[in-house]
Design a protein around this nucleic acid. Sequence first.
DNA 1: TCCGCCTTCCTAATGATCCTAGGGAAGGTC
DNA 2: GACCTTCCCTAGGATCATTAGGAAGGCGGA
Lengths: 189, 189
Amino acid sequence: MPRERLTPDALVSAAADLADEIGFDHLTLSALAKRSGVRDASLYTHIGGLADLRERVAMLALGEWADALGEAIAGRSGHTALTAFADTYRTLAMGRPGRYAATRHPVPPDRLAASGDAARIIDVCYALLRGYDLSEPDATDAVRLLRSTLHGFSDLEATGGFTADHSLDTSWHRAVEALHHTLTHWSDI
Amino acid sequence: MPRERLTPDALVSAAADLADEIGFDHLTLSALAKRSGVRDASLYTHIGGLADLRERVAMLALGEWADALGEAIAGRSGHTALTAFADTYRTLAMGRPGRYAATRHPVPPDRLAASGDAARIIDVCYALLRGYDLSEPDATDAVRLLRSTLHGFSDLEATGGFTADHSLDTSWHRAVEALHHTLTHWSDI
DNA sequence: TCCGCCTTCCTAATGATCCTAGGGAAGGTC
DNA sequence: GACCTTCCCTAGGATCATTAGGAAGGCGGA
């Protein structure tokens, strides 16, 4: 009886799940092979090695991120869109830590450009800002501030950087409100 | 002729320099041993292993961070202090990438508490906010926002997350000004 | 002086992991 | 029926973390 055929996509998907369970840093070929019911060396038929696997997982995660964030702001604008965007971002970061770490894994620019996923995320950010009436170059500065704030908070939360005995939900909410305020009053800054 | 004696402190310092050169993720015992003119196994006389080394480097980096940030805001307040704090933060993050990555390496809470370095950084953040007239629990929310923004920007910049053809210095400056505006108008948010 | 003890570093060996080279089976094609 | 491609295998080399045990030198006490 023939065994289930492996494919690069199935492997990358399994690797992403594995990363969510054990952490992106602990993703190894041995572990992936074991889970896939195959020997280490057999993986090389489908992927180029560990570095290639990591980059593929990173791109998968970026694509999923772009999908989820794009869906969150669809049909919304302004404060509503920002809140949906931010909450989706944080929920993903907390719920899929391996994939979230993967989105920060450096991927060669040409490979990134070829997939288009990174660009889609940036596009979603710009779409979000349409409700705030910003034009270049302010829009780029604002996108960078937005991404920095959400990423910084999520990363610090995920790595245990916040230790004070105070609700993280509250702090997150205040941070998003502060962003809204900043974006609304951008020209005054 | 007796060779130069190794000490844990000297090893950790060398490891931090090595991390700045090759990246915290690529810090290995073999590389540290080679640089120290000693065999891998000899390191175990001074440190507990790779995990222990990483945590020690993390605590060293946190201490240096606290020193530099504390010095940056000494004798300053309000906008001046915020600018000095932020610029010092980014300069350190860019100039010492291995140490910066180390500051985000998870360290067991008890060990962190024993060193006191993490608490010093938080203290510096609270000291910085004294110029903005915030009281609890707003101060904690504000500290979290401050750290999130600076960390998020530095991390995205360091990992190549910003690709738009627009000055990063400008975006950083705008982000800091936005923080200042937010902190100044905290009660309106 | 000599003897044991401690510190520091060594060699040797084990096991995990990544990766390459080359072989064999299954199935399609000429 | 011979050939080719695909997929997975075994075998083995390289790097790395880690443990075990031994040699060299310093130091204190008999």
